[in-house]
């Protein structure tokens, strides 16, 4: 959980990158950051054509939020439209996870993915249908105190649409709210068609770069070969990119480790690798990392996507201007 936190924050700060790229980006901790990315995308970009995750996680966020912060305020917002609530709550929820106030609840939910958030949703729906403010308050309070009670409660709701009980009864005339319908849709989707449901949250994972310090001025990037293998890119290409971006030089040592001049931390290398993946690995059309880099005619590099077949040219790696660092006398000699 603690390892998940920095990555959350880092993602939040990287606003220039669209969430589409974000999703595919290196998940260095190897942890599931489902909560993080949907939160990001709805906040930063309005393009949520994959509405499945955002509302769910948002609802989750709304819940934890409401429970911990202002139980009294929550019902009023429940009465509002779903979208409004999403927008309002998103930020707060995010802050909370970052601060670690409700930390325990939120990431745990994120790991379990859709299921848990669904359950929470369902509860809400019941509250809404009763249209009883006091009841809602009570529920919120209960949830605020402990998430444990949420589970059994939701279990009994679980049967709702499957068995056709409660508001999903066949002859039930009261209108079903949007959010339970939506959660039902996604629950069914994940049940019947798990591939489809998981596409939005799948993230491209590569092993985190291992950085060692050699002496005082050099950094060893130990698992470059492994990472390159995973990305299906030539070592030289990746090294060239690394050197160009970091503005340094280096060499490859006997055991295929990369020795970079200068001091670099793991997260710095991670950032560069991330941009590399966005630029040279992921397919811009279908976001799949299953691509091939090949040298086309005319010294141009092309990326061919193996899953959708699209082909695009990528820029050659340019070193650009590099200022003179260090003693001039050394350079002359």
């Amino acid at each position: 959980m603690s390892t998940e936190e920095p990555s959350l924050q880092r993602r939040a700060s990287r606003k220039s990158v669209a969430f589409t790229d974000e999703k595919l980006v290196v998940d260095a901790d190897g942890s599931v950051t489902m909560v993080a990315s949907p939160n990001d995308d709805t906040k930063e970009t309005a393009m949520s054509h994959t509405p499945r995750t955002p509302p769910l996680s948002a609802a989750l966020g709304a819940f934890t939020d409401a429970a911990s912060q202002a139980p009294a305020a929550a019902p009023a917002e429940d009465a509002d439209g779903l979208d409004l609530r999403l927008m309002k709550k998103k930020k707060k929820a995010k802050v909370e996870t970052a601060e670690g106030d409700d930390e325990a609840a939120a990431p745990a939910a994120g790991e379990e993915g859709i299921d848990l958030s669904l359950k929470k949703k369902k509860k809400k729906k019941v509250a809404k249908d009763d249209d009883d403010f006091a009841k809602k308050l009570e529920k919120l309070n209960i949830e605020g105190k402990e998430g444990e009670e949420a589970a059994p409660e939701s279990e009994e709701q679980e049967g709702d649409w499957e068995k056709g009980t409660g508001i999903f009864k066949h002859d039930e005339t009261s209108t079903i709210n949007y959010s339970p319908l939506l959660s039902r849709f996604f629950a069914l989707l994940s049940q019947k068609n798990p591939d489809h449901a998981s596409t939005g949250t799948r993230s491209y994972k590569i092993p985190p770069p291992q950085c060692l310090r050699e002496g005082n001025k050099k950094t060893i990037f130990a698992n470059l070969a492994e990472i390159c293998k995973r990305m299906k890119r030539a070592d030289e290409h990746v090294t060239a990119y690394l050197f160009a971006e970091l503005g340094t030089s280096g060499s490859v040592d006997g055991s295929r480790r990369l020795v970079i001049k200068g001091r670099f931390q793991q997260k710095q290398i991670e950032n560069v690798l991330r941009t590399y993946i966005i630029e040279y690995v992921t397919c811009k059309t279908c976001r799949s990392p299953n691509t091939e880099l090949s040298k086309g005619e005319n010294r141009l590099y092309f990326i061919t996507c193996n899953s959708c077949g699209s082909r695009r040219s990528v820029q050659a790696i340019k070193t650009g201007f590099s200022a003179q660092v260090g003693k001039r006398r050394k350079n002359k000699a």
Partner: peptide, 9 residues
Amino acid sequence: IHIRIQQRN
């Protein structure tokens, strides 16, 4: 326009 950073000592 390229903005780059370089490490010094």
